[in-house]
Protein backbone atom coordinates (compact mmCIF):
# COMPACT_ATOMS: atom_id res chain seq x y z
CA UNK A 1 0.00 0.00 0.00
CA UNK A 2 1.52 3.27 -1.10
CA UNK A 3 0.98 6.51 0.70
CA UNK A 4 -0.38 9.15 -1.63
CA UNK A 5 -0.50 12.88 -1.06
CA UNK A 6 -4.23 12.54 -0.52
CA UNK A 7 -3.63 10.22 2.43
CA UNK A 8 -1.04 12.59 3.88
CA UNK A 9 -3.52 15.47 3.70
CA UNK A 10 -6.12 13.33 5.42
CA UNK A 11 -3.71 12.33 8.19
CA UNK A 12 -2.64 15.95 8.72
CA UNK A 13 -6.24 17.15 8.87
CA UNK A 14 -7.28 14.30 11.17
CA UNK A 15 -4.38 15.13 13.46
CA UNK A 16 -5.47 18.77 13.60
CA UNK A 17 -9.06 17.73 14.37
CA UNK A 18 -8.11 15.23 17.07
CA UNK A 19 -5.66 17.59 18.80
CA UNK A 20 -8.11 20.50 18.64
CA UNK A 21 -11.04 18.41 19.83
CA UNK A 22 -8.99 17.11 22.74
CA UNK A 23 -8.13 20.70 23.50
CA UNK A 24 -11.82 21.59 23.67
CA UNK A 25 -12.26 19.08 26.49
CA UNK A 26 -8.94 19.42 28.28
CA UNK A 27 -8.30 23.18 28.26
CA UNK A 28 -9.26 24.85 31.50
CA UNK A 29 -10.20 28.24 30.08
CA UNK A 30 -13.56 28.15 28.34
CA UNK A 31 -12.51 30.78 25.79
CA UNK A 32 -9.51 28.66 24.82
CA UNK A 33 -11.85 25.70 24.47
CA UNK A 34 -14.08 27.66 22.11
CA UNK A 35 -11.08 28.79 20.03
CA UNK A 36 -9.91 25.18 19.90
CA UNK A 37 -13.37 24.20 18.70
CA UNK A 38 -12.98 26.62 15.78
CA UNK A 39 -9.72 24.92 14.84
CA UNK A 40 -11.48 21.55 14.91
CA UNK A 41 -14.23 22.89 12.62
CA UNK A 42 -11.68 24.27 10.17
CA UNK A 43 -9.99 20.86 10.16
CA UNK A 44 -13.30 19.18 9.33
CA UNK A 45 -13.76 21.70 6.51
CA UNK A 46 -10.31 20.67 5.27
CA UNK A 47 -11.45 17.04 5.10
CA UNK A 48 -14.51 18.12 3.10
CA UNK A 49 -12.20 19.93 0.66
CA UNK A 50 -10.03 16.85 0.40
CA UNK A 51 -13.14 14.84 -0.53
CA UNK A 52 -13.82 17.49 -3.23
CA UNK A 53 -16.97 18.69 -1.49
CA UNK A 54 -15.91 22.34 -1.64
CA UNK A 55 -19.35 23.81 -1.09
CA UNK A 56 -19.99 21.80 2.09
CA UNK A 57 -16.52 22.70 3.34
CA UNK A 58 -17.20 26.40 2.84
CA UNK A 59 -20.59 26.11 4.55
CA UNK A 60 -18.74 24.43 7.42
CA UNK A 61 -16.31 27.36 7.62
CA UNK A 62 -18.96 30.05 7.30
CA UNK A 63 -21.64 28.61 9.57
CA UNK A 64 -19.53 26.86 12.19
CA UNK A 65 -16.14 28.56 12.26
CA UNK A 66 -17.43 32.01 11.31
CA UNK A 67 -20.40 32.20 13.64
CA UNK A 68 -18.91 30.35 16.60
CA UNK A 69 -17.48 33.68 17.69
CA UNK A 70 -20.97 34.46 18.98
CA UNK A 71 -20.66 31.40 21.18
CA UNK A 72 -17.36 32.71 22.54
CA UNK A 73 -18.99 36.06 23.20
CA UNK A 74 -21.65 34.31 25.25
CA UNK A 75 -19.00 32.31 27.07
CA UNK A 76 -17.20 35.54 27.94
CA UNK A 77 -20.43 37.21 29.05
CA UNK A 78 -21.44 34.27 31.23
CA UNK A 79 -18.11 34.11 33.05
CA UNK A 80 -17.48 37.85 33.05
CA UNK A 81 -17.57 38.36 36.82
CA UNK A 82 -15.28 35.49 37.85
CA UNK A 83 -11.83 34.47 36.79
CA UNK A 84 -11.80 32.76 33.39
CA UNK A 85 -8.78 30.69 34.24
CA UNK A 86 -10.82 27.84 35.70
CA UNK A 87 -14.13 27.90 33.85
CA UNK A 88 -13.94 24.57 32.02
CA UNK A 89 -12.84 22.14 34.70
CA UNK A 90 -13.68 18.48 35.08
CA UNK A 91 -16.53 17.66 37.38
CA UNK A 92 -15.31 17.13 40.95
CA UNK A 93 -17.93 14.40 41.37
CA UNK A 94 -16.23 11.01 40.87
CA UNK A 95 -19.45 9.21 39.88
CA UNK A 96 -20.22 11.73 37.14
CA UNK A 97 -16.65 11.54 35.92
CA UNK A 98 -16.80 7.76 35.72
CA UNK A 99 -20.22 7.84 34.05
CA UNK A 100 -18.91 10.24 31.41
CA UNK A 101 -15.85 8.11 30.79
CA UNK A 102 -18.01 5.01 30.52
CA UNK A 103 -20.35 6.65 28.01
CA UNK A 104 -17.40 7.86 25.95
CA UNK A 105 -15.88 4.39 26.00
CA UNK A 106 -19.19 2.85 24.84
CA UNK A 107 -19.42 5.44 22.06
CA UNK A 108 -15.90 4.65 20.89
CA UNK A 109 -16.58 0.90 20.97
CA UNK A 110 -19.80 1.33 18.97
CA UNK A 111 -18.10 3.54 16.40
CA UNK A 112 -15.09 1.26 16.13
CA UNK A 113 -17.17 -1.88 15.76
CA UNK A 114 -19.49 -0.33 13.19
CA UNK A 115 -16.58 0.98 11.13
CA UNK A 116 -14.66 -2.32 11.40
CA UNK A 117 -17.54 -4.55 10.30
CA UNK A 118 -18.99 -2.34 7.56
CA UNK A 119 -17.97 -3.16 4.00
CA UNK A 120 -17.40 0.22 2.33
CA UNK A 121 -17.84 0.00 -1.43
CA UNK A 122 -14.79 1.59 -3.07
CA UNK A 123 -15.84 3.39 -6.22
CA UNK A 124 -13.11 5.15 -8.19
CA UNK A 125 -15.33 8.07 -9.14
CA UNK A 126 -14.64 11.72 -9.74
CA UNK A 127 -16.62 14.28 -7.78
CA UNK A 128 -19.59 15.81 -9.57
CA UNK A 129 -18.67 18.66 -11.92
CA UNK A 130 -21.45 21.03 -10.88
CA UNK A 131 -21.97 20.12 -7.24
CA UNK A 132 -23.59 23.44 -6.34
CA UNK A 133 -26.10 23.15 -9.18
CA UNK A 134 -26.99 19.60 -8.12
CA UNK A 135 -27.46 20.70 -4.52
CA UNK A 136 -29.58 23.65 -5.61
CA UNK A 137 -31.79 21.41 -7.76
CA UNK A 138 -32.27 19.01 -4.86
CA UNK A 139 -33.00 21.75 -2.33
CA UNK A 140 -35.34 23.72 -4.56
CA UNK A 141 -36.78 20.69 -6.36
CA UNK A 142 -37.26 17.31 -4.70
CA UNK A 143 -36.74 18.43 -1.11
CA UNK A 144 -38.20 21.93 -1.27
CA UNK A 145 -40.83 21.28 1.41
CA UNK A 146 -38.32 19.82 3.87
CA UNK A 147 -35.92 22.69 3.11
CA UNK A 148 -38.52 25.40 3.65
CA UNK A 149 -39.86 23.68 6.77
CA UNK A 150 -36.38 23.61 8.25
CA UNK A 151 -35.99 27.31 7.43
CA UNK A 152 -39.30 28.18 9.14
CA UNK A 153 -38.38 25.98 12.10
CA UNK A 154 -35.12 27.91 12.53
CA UNK A 155 -36.99 31.21 12.29
CA UNK A 156 -39.41 30.06 14.97
CA UNK A 157 -36.48 29.01 17.15
CA UNK A 158 -34.83 32.42 16.74
CA UNK A 159 -38.03 34.28 17.60
CA UNK A 160 -38.57 31.96 20.55
CA UNK A 161 -35.06 32.58 21.80
CA UNK A 162 -35.55 36.35 21.57
CA UNK A 163 -38.85 36.14 23.45
CA UNK A 164 -37.32 33.89 26.12
CA UNK A 165 -34.42 36.29 26.54
CA UNK A 166 -36.24 39.61 26.44
CA UNK A 167 -39.75 38.58 27.51
CA UNK A 168 -42.90 39.02 25.44
CA UNK A 169 -44.82 42.26 25.76
CA UNK A 170 -48.34 41.89 27.12
CA UNK A 171 -51.10 43.22 24.93
CA UNK A 172 -52.98 45.11 27.61
Amino acid sequence: MTVSLNDLVFVAMALVIVVAATGVVMLKNIVHSALSLILAFVGVAGIYFQLSAGFIGLVQIMVYAGAISVLIIFAIMLVMDKSVEKTNLFSPNIIRLLAGMGLTFLLFVTLGVSIWFTKFPVVPAEGPVDAVGMLANLFMGDYVIAFETAAILLLVAVIGAIILAKGAEDKQ
Binding site: I38, L58, I61, M62, A65, G66, I68
Partner: peptide, 9 residues
Protein backbone atom coordinates in the same frame (compact mmCIF):
# COMPACT_ATOMS: atom_id res chain seq x y z
CA UNK B 1 -17.45 35.38 1.67
CA UNK B 2 -16.90 32.45 4.02
CA UNK B 3 -13.15 32.88 4.39
CA UNK B 4 -13.70 36.59 4.87
CA UNK B 5 -16.06 35.79 7.74
CA UNK B 6 -13.15 34.18 9.61
CA UNK B 7 -11.59 37.59 10.25
CA UNK B 8 -14.27 38.13 12.91
CA UNK B 9 -12.61 35.45 15.02
Amino acid sequence: ISVGSLSTI
